[in-house]
Design a binder for these strands. Structure first.
Length: 563
RNA sequence: GCACCCGUAGUGAAAUGGAUAUCAUACACGCCUUCGAAGCGUUUGUUGUAGGUUCGAGUCCUACCGGGUGCACCA
């Protein structure tokens, strides 16, 4: 329909005197201004030296001469907008198609099977799974879901932080202050490990030699020569993974691959990367370390190999992407959903990968999100002031149980996820218990509730043996009309959400959609055997449910049976 | 010091350069003897400052002010 309207508007504009017009179609914010609108008359008013309204009227006159059956008419409004109204029959056709496509409604093949790796969550082993990782997990999962729905071949990768100097610190702390047997038997070994990690940073302030000793331990770990150390490292991973999987189960998140950084840290792999960089003349020695220096000081230098010869995150990330490139081949896009504090690093990394000819601009994406912080500062593992994810889920469930025990888990998770997904991820969030598990207003439970309630309506209709279809009379109800027309925007919002890597576009759409339904629900009695339009109203209700369920599903939010 | 991000009702947020800047929350007042009140309705209140580009700026550009993050062996 968009293509058809654009084509017809172009024809009409040319007849009105515009040479080679550029048509931009949009949906007016106020739905009463029509289903589509264009500003073409305002854009060309200066060139043609005609008042925008007069030009718009000329275009509309031409446009209305040759209307397709899908449109009812076009009008001029405001300063010179051209508003286009879709014919009721086309609206009905859309609703009919939603009902027939069900859970496939909105699915498309625009991805054409193009591969996209979405790397998200990526917690660090032996560091807490806190609210900080929550954002990456929730947003990354939603992005992966949306791309999958749009016909991309999505690879969800949890890039576990299971390597690095942090393990030298941890192993040092376990050895010095920890009780290994106790950790192994603990209910929450991660919390024990984190306590040791925090202790390390406290003590390292006093004894300056600890940092060096920790780095040395990491060097031994990376060399693989001390089996005792390697074994302890392996055990830490095992214990952490066990706890992570519990949380992923609760969140309903799963991955295709969980390659840790350690997979890309072998001497052979890092040497291969260093050779590649050398061959392109990108490597410089500086203070015994190998670094990449960027032309014109575009970015600060980036260390690729530390002066003690061990790898650093950049080495391992390059090795990871080299592996991905060789494994998944051409036409590959890689998205890293990682906090905004790593923005500079990712720019450096992408620049290197571009210079190496691995990826073009647009094939490497950093979706960055702002931080959760307290009113008085940043959360920091090293300092030990963090909020644990399990605590948040537990607290949310407690609040949801108070309203209805049956659906507590789905509602709690829905509230937490939606609170994150409804906002532009660039902003920092000041942590607030009431805010994060909000269950009224613009919230997950608001959407779930609208859906559950709509389903109850259909159940009741089914009991009475009523028909659910669009073949009968279309009731003349404003709220029904608005709901039905707004439903037509679903696929477009999905595409826009995907292209801009902003799940909050979809989230905002669903809020509006639910609100349209709630108004419709409040203003009319849907199940009414005596009324002619009941089958149609039920059909629109059914279409709403499919659209809402599909949308929520993409955001990783489940709809409970009752709530 | 340099770089990047963010400044929108009391609070939290939304808005592909478009129309009267939207939504929630809080406050006040209404609506369940007809489909589920986690809902619906009514009322109050907003684009940091100063310039610029544009027919049109919360959005783009410049400067400033405020907050955040990052800048060599952490990830």
């Amino acid at each position: 329909m968009i293509e058809e309207i654009t084509h017809l508007l172009k024809k009409a504009s040319i007849k009105a005197g515009i040479i080679d017009p550029f048509i931009k179609l949009e949906h007016p914010e106020d739905i009463s201004h029509g289903d589509f609108s264009t500003n073409v008359a305002m854009v060309y008013t200066k060139v043609l030296k005609i008042a925008p309204k007069i030009l718009a009227e000329k275009i509309v006159e031409e446009f209305n001469k040759d209307l397709p059956s899908t449109l009812s008419n076009a009008t001029v409004a405001g300063p010179g907008f051209i508003n286009i109204y879709v014919h009721n029959s086309a609206v009905t056709k859309n609703t009919t198609s939603v009902i027939s496509l069900k859970e496939n409604y909105g699915r498309s093949d625009i991805g054409g099977g193009k591969k996209i790796i979405v790397e998200y969550s990526s917690p660090n082993i032996a560091k807490p799974f806190t609210i900080g990782h929550l954002r990456s997990t929730i947003i990354g999962d939603a992005i992966a879901n949306i791309y999958d729905f749009l016909g991309y071949k999505v690879i969800r990768d949890n890039h576990l932080g299971d390597w690095g100097t942090q393990f030298g610190k941890l192993l040092f702390a376990i050895d010095k202050w920890g009780d290994w047997d106790k950790i192994e038997k603990s209910d929450s070994p991660i919390k024990d490990l984190v306590a040791l990690y925090v202790k390390f940073h406290d003590e390292a302030l006093i004894d300056k030699s600890y940092e060096d000793q920790a780095r040395n331990l990491f060097k031994i770990l990376e060399s693989g020569e001390n089996s005792d150390i390697t074994e302890k490292w392996r055990k830490c991973i095992e214990l952490s993974k066990k706890e992570f999987s519990k949380i992923y189960d609760k969140l309903g998140v799963s991955f295709d691959t969980e390659f840790g950084e350690s997979m890309f840290a072998s001497p052979e792999k890092s040497n291969e990367i260093l050779e590649i960089l050398k061959s392109k003349n990108l490597l410089t020695t500086s203070e015994n370390a190998q670094v990449v220096i960027f032309e014109n000081e575009k970015y600060p230098p980036l260390i690729i190999q530390k002066s003690d010869g061990t790898t650093i995150y950049a080495t391992r990330d390059l090795a990871t992407d080299w592996y991905r490139k060789n494994t998944y081949g051409k036409d590959l896009m890689i998205v890293n959903e990682v906090g905004s504090e790593q923005t500079l690093y990712f720019r450096q990394l992408f620049e290197i990968e571009r210079l190496l000819g691995w990826f073009e601009i647009g094939e490497r994406i950093h979706v960055s999100h702002g931080l959760y912080r307290f009113k008085d500062g940043k959360m920091s593992t090293r300092k030990g002031n963090v909020i644990w994810l399990d605590d948040i889920i537990d607290e949310a469930e407690k609040r949801a149980v108070a309203l209805n025990p049956e659906s507590a888990n789905d509602v709690a998770i829905g509230a937490i996820k939606f609170n994150d997904l409804k906002r532009d991820c660039a902003h920092d969030i000041v942590f607030d218990w009431d805010e994060i598990m909000n269950m009224t207003g613009d919230s997950g439970p608001y959407l779930q509730y609208a859906c559950v309630r709509a389903e109850a309506v259909l159940d009741k209709a089914k009991e009475k043996g009523l028909k659910v279809d669009t073949s009968g009379t279309r009731p003349d109800i404003v709220s029904l009309d608005m709901l039905e027309r707004y439903m037509m925007h679903f696929e477009e919002k999905l595409v826009f959400s995907a292209n801009s890597f902003k799940p909050n576009i979809l989230a905002g759409y669903l809020i509006n959609l639910a609100s349209f339904f709630n108004v419709f629900y409040a203003q009319t009695v849907i199940v009414d055997e005596k009324e002619e339009g009941t089958a149609y109203k039920l059909a629109v209700t059914q279409a709403f449910i499919y659209t809402m369920r599909n949308g929520l599903n993409l955001l990783g939010i489940k709809v409970p049976k009752r709530m």
